[in-house]
Design a protein around this nucleic acid. Structure first.
Lengths: 210, 210
DNA sequence: TCTTTTTCTGACCGTATGGTCAGGTTCAAG
DNA sequence: CTTGAACCTGACCATACGGTCAGAAAAAGA
C-alpha cells in the first residue's frame, strides 16, 4: 500500500483519500444502487472508518452526486473524436470504439449512470436539461450535415444517437447477462474485438455509410 | 373502486389484492430500486396497510421475486412472432415492434428487470442460466439459418440479439432521458411510430435484410 | 345459528442506517 | 519548539426499516 511509503503532503492526503472513497463508492453504488448502498460498506471497501467518509463528503447524497458527475465527464468527452471526423464512417466509428472502451473500462460508472437516469435523474436532472441537451443538438446537427452532404442515409439523428448509446452501454449495464450467456466467463480480448466490430459494422451499414 | 361493488368471493379477494400489490410493487421498485423501495411506500401506493402486504407476500424479497418473474414472462413471449416468420424482415421486424410496444406499455417492468441484471441478477440468476440461455441459443440458431439461406448478411447472431435488446429496452429504461431531450414531454403517438420505424429501418438495413 | 377458515390490521420489536461529535493525532508554518 | 489548522475516529444518537403477532372482522360451511 501507499501508506507506508513516506509521509504524505496535505494536498496529497486529501486528493488520495477522495479518489479512494470515490472509487469505492462507484463500485458499491453500481452493485447495490443508491438505496441499497451503505456508507459502512463503502467505508469497508475503501479501507477507512465510516466517520472518515463524512469528513470528506458531508452526506451520502453528496458522495453519490460526485460519483455521477465524474461519470458524466468521461461520457461527454467520448465524443471528442466524433467532431473532427470528415464523415460518418470515421466519426461514428470512432465514437462507437470510444464508448465500447468506456463500457469495458468503467462498467461500474455506466451502471451508476443508468441507475440514476432510470430513477428519474433526481440528482443530475439539471445536467440533462442543459449540458446533455446542448451536446445532443450539436451532434444531431453534425449528423444532419453528413446526411445533407450525401455521406449517409437520411436517418433520424436523435434516434441514431439513442441507438449508439443503448448498444454500447448495454455491454456494461447488462454485462452480467452477457457474461452468463457466454458460459459464465467475461468476454476475452478477442470477444471484445468481435463485439466492437459487430456493433460498428451493423450500425454503419444501417445508416448507409458503407 | 371495486370494493363497494359487491361482496367478493374468497378467490377474487386473494387474486385481486395480489395483483394490486404486484402493480404497486412494480412501480415502486422501478422508481426506487430494490434497496430504495420500502414496504410502507408500496403499501401506500396499493392503498393497503403494510401488514396486509406481509399477509400475501412473506418478505420484501418474495414480492420482488414475483415482480421480476412476471416481467420475464412478458419478455419471453415477445419473440413468439419471430418464430413463424419466413425471413428476417418479417421476423426481426415483428420482434422489434413487439419489444418497442413492451417498452411503451411496461416501462416499469423493464426498469426492474434492468436493475436486477445490473446488480448481478441475485434473484433470477438461475433463469438466466437455464431459460434465457436456451431461448438465446434457439433464436441465434434461427438467425444463423437465415444467414445460411442468404436472407441477410453474415452478422454475429448473439451480438445482433444484444443490439435488439439494448435498442428497444433503451426507450423504457432511459425513457426519462429521452423525455427530457424531447423538451420534457413524453413521446407522442407519432413520435413512437417514428422511433419504431427508425429502429426497424436502421437494424434491418444494418443486417442486410432490405 | 354456530363453527371454522380466511382475511385483515394496529401496535409493537430488534436492528441497521445515516449522521454527529468530542477529543485525539499529525502535519506545516513561524 | 510552539501553535494552529487539518485530519482522523470510536462511541453515540435518532430514525426508519422489515418483519411479527394477537386478535378483530368477514366469509364459508354445517
Amino acid at each position: 500500500m501507499t501508506q507506508t511509503a513516506r509521509p504524505l503532503r496535505r494536498n496529497e492526503i486529501r486528493q488520495q483519500n477522495e479518489t479512494l472513497i470515490l472509487q469505492a463508492a462507484e463500485k458499491v453504488f453500481a452493485e447495490a444502487g443508491f438505496g441499497g448502498a451503505t456508507m459502512q460498506l463503502i467505508a469497508d471497501v475503501a479501507g477507512l472508518p465510516k466517520a472518515n467518509l463524512h469528513y470528506y463528503f458531508a452526506t451520502k447524497e453528496d458522495l453519490y452526486r460526485r460519483v455521477v458527475q465524474n461519470i458524466f465527464e468521461i461520457w461527454l468527452h467520448a465524443a471528442d473524436s466524433m467532431d473532427q471526423a470528415a464523415g460518418p464512417v470515421e466519426g461514428i466509428g470512432a465514437y462507437i470504439e470510444a464508448k465500447m472502451e468506456i463500457s469495458r473500462r468503467h462498467p461500474d460508472g455506466s451502471k451508476v449512470w443508468a441507475s440514476e437516469v432510470m430513477h428519474g435523474a433526481p440528482v443530475i436532472q439539471d445536467y440533462l436539461e442543459t449540458t446533455l441537451r446542448e451536446w445532443t443538438t450539436g451532434r444531431a446537427g453534425l449528423i444532419q450535415r453528413w446526411i445533407d452532404e450525401g455521406k449517409m442515409a437520411a436517418v433520424n439523428p436523435e434516434h441514431l444517437l439513442y441507438m449508439l448509446w443503448a448498444t454500447t452501454q448495454h455491454y456494461a449495464d447488462f454485462g452480467h447477462q452477457i457474461e452468463t450467456l457466454n458460459g459464465g466467463a467475461p468476454l476475452t480480448d478477442q470477444q471484445w474485438r468481435a463485439a466492437k466490430d459487430s456493433v460498428k459494422s451493423m450500425i454503419l451499414r444501417g445508416i448507409g455509410a458503407v
